[in-house]
Amino acid sequence: MNYYSPRSLYSLIPQHGRWFIKEINNVSTLYTTNLGSRLRFTTNGISKLTVNVLDNRNELSPSQIYAWRIDNGPWHREQASQNSWKIKTNPESHLIEIITAGNTDLDRVWSGNQGFAISSVEIDQGTLESAPSVPVIDFIGDSITAGCWVAGRHASYDYRPERNYVGTAVDLLHATDVRIAYSAGGVLRQATGEVPTAEHFLTHLDASTPWKANNPDLVVVNLGVNDRRFPLKQFTSRYDHFLSLVTSLFPTPPILIMIPFSQTFAEPIRRLASNHQLPVIETTGWCTTYTDGLHPDQPGATESGVRLAQKLSNWLK
């Protein structure tokens, strides 16, 4: 049995996204605070993998969830409370993807070390290798972008980052993604899990860890809906500042600004994007069904993901 430590797994990720090495309860882990964080690697000569994780939730929360698939096949979901799961395959080379697929607002991801934590991967034979390179898209947003409430109203268990509008679009584009998104967050409103506002969570991985931005092919911003109860003038000032931060952090790739599906602050977002010379993705009528009037359900997520893929395809060519 061969053992891949968190640091060995980290070395397989060419663009590290929002993963980093963190010690949790005296255990070294590959750690992320983001719902929707993805790992991609290939197997070579392996017939069985065992993925070991920490049951790292808040004591009042249901289990955190991971999802995995082989060669772009169907997604399988696993509870972190089981501490491990097995992936069976054959010795040929295969693409394995693992995504952090469920947590709750009670998980203190920012300063309480209650993010997603992978402690190791064990293989029966062969090796793990870096996955082939594909386009990388960074998505900056809130719970809608992260993948909350797609399958229903149960926290964690009904989250579907693997199949929300982002997951759908990425699959259609044959790309991968980095989610920089937290439930309830905005440019003015702090997110849940003790996460600060967007200008702070964009530049940090948690309360004590700065983030060195990756080098994506595209950046997509979908923020504003959680700021709807703040005055327009206050939102305009802060969103303008946030766009300046995004353009300074990502000076090379195209940055696209989405109008929220709810059309919240649509006109000031258009105006500010124009001021920063950033293209706008209009979303009127993109999503016609919702779980709760705000978060797209699975048909709505698929519908909006297909439309987004059509828009983004023009920027990836």
Rank of each mutant, 00 (worst) to 15 (best):
Pro135Asn: 12
Ala301Asp: 05
Gln190Gly: 12
Tyr239Pro: 15
Asn215Gln: 00
Gly152Thr: 08
Asp240Glu: 13
Val280Thr: 12
Thr127Ser: 06
Arg189Pro: 02
Asp124Ala: 08
Glu303Pro: 00
Ile13Val: 02
Phe242Glu: 12
Gly126Lys: 01
Leu205Gln: 11
Thr284Val: 06
Ala198Asn: 02
Ile46Leu: 06
Gly152Ile: 07
Tyr10Pro: 03
Leu188Lys: 09
Ser81Gln: 15
Ile70Ala: 11
Pro268Leu: 10
Gly17Asn: 01
Asn214Trp: 06
Ile98Lys: 00
Val170Glu: 07
Thr209Ser: 05
Gln125Val: 00
Leu249Gly: 00
Arg77Gly: 11
Leu12Pro: 01
Trp286Leu: 03
Pro132Gly: 03
Lys88Cys: 15
Val53Thr: 14
Thr145Leu: 07
Gly112Ser: 08
Trp315Thr: 11
Gln310His: 07
Ser130Lys: 01
Asp297Trp: 01
Ser208His: 15
Trp110Ser: 03
Ser47Asp: 15
Arg238Ile: 10
Arg271Asn: 12
Ile24Val: 09
Asn2Gly: 10
His76Ile: 14
Gly126Cys: 04
Arg270Val: 05
Ser37Pro: 12
Leu218Asn: 08
Cys287Pro: 02
Val220Tyr: 03
Thr100Tyr: 02
Val219Ala: 05
Pro268Ser: 04
Ile24Thr: 04
Val178His: 04
Leu272His: 05
Asp292Cys: 10
Arg108Glu: 14
Ala198Thr: 13
Gln310Glu: 15
Asn275Phe: 15
Ile98Gln: 04
Ala198Tyr: 06
Asp71Pro: 00
Pro135Gln: 07
Ser8Arg: 06
Arg57Asp: 10
Asn275Leu: 11
Leu30Arg: 01
Ala101Cys: 13
Ala117Ile: 01
Pro216Asp: 03
Glu122Pro: 00
Ile255Gly: 05
Pro253His: 04
Asn222Met: 14
Pro210Ser: 10
Thr236Asn: 13
Gln263Trp: 14
Val170Met: 07
Arg189Leu: 06
Gly224Arg: 05
Phe20Pro: 04
Gly285Trp: 11
Thr127Gly: 00
Ile46Asn: 00
Lys88Gly: 13
Thr29Ser: 02
Val166Asn: 00
His295Ala: 05
Val187Lys: 05
Gly112Ala: 09
Ser111Arg: 02
Cys148Met: 14
Ser47Trp: 02
Leu278Met: 07
Thr145Met: 13
Ser37Asp: 07
Thr192Lys: 00
Arg69Tyr: 03
Gly167Asn: 04
Tyr4Val: 01
Phe41Cys: 02
Ala169Phe: 13
Glu303Val: 11
Glu194Phe: 11
Glu92Lys: 02
Asn214Cys: 04
Ala184Gly: 12
Glu122Leu: 11
Ile118Pro: 02
Tyr239Asn: 09
Ile255Val: 09
Asn164Met: 13
Thr264Phe: 09
Gln82Asp: 14
His200Ala: 12
Glu59Asp: 10
His200Lys: 12
Leu30Ser: 09
Arg40Trp: 00
Ile180Asp: 08
Ile70Tyr: 01
Lys88Arg: 15
